[in-house]
């Protein structure tokens, strides 16, 4: 019984660490096409690094049929747009100050982050 309880507590700790504490690597927005794929409930890559003070373009391609995935929101920038299925869609970002900007779908099940520095 003790073992089972320890396993349970470890499991909880792992959930906390994996989903909240761990920071995945960021993909840098190179000059050429970094395409964010929307598929299977995720943006990939989901963490994008962009330079500060420069207007850049993010390219998305949605391969996920679920209607949840079709709206892209960047609330801090007042951007909301529709991603067509299987088609490249460019989102123009204004020049940004350093900081973190979240992007997600309407329901926040698909989540990503733009890090500006």
């Amino acid at each position: 019984m003790l073992i089972i309880n320890i396993v349970g507590v470890v499991l909880i700790a792992l959930i906390v660490w994996w989903f909240w504490l761990y920071k995945p690597k960021e993909a840098a927005l190179g000059e050429n096409d970094l395409v964010i794929t929307v598929e299977n409930g995720t943006y990939s890559p989901s963490r994008i690094k962009v330079p500060a003070g420069e207007s850049v373009e993010l390219k998305f391609i949605r391969k996920d049929e679920s209607p949840c995935s079709e709206t892209l929101l960047i609330p801090a920038l007042q951007i909301s747009d529709t991603l067509p299925l299987n088609k490249l869609k460019s989102i123009q970002l204004p020049a940004l100050k350093s900081g973190e900007y979240a992007f997600h779908c309407q329901m926040q099940m698909y989540r990503g982050q733009i890090t500006v520095n």
Partner: peptide, 12 residues
């Protein structure tokens, strides 16, 4: 979907 988002450290 679950597996892909798990790899991505997210859950839905």
């Amino acid at each position: 979907g679950a597996w892909k988002s798990f790899l991505n450290h997210s859950a839905n």
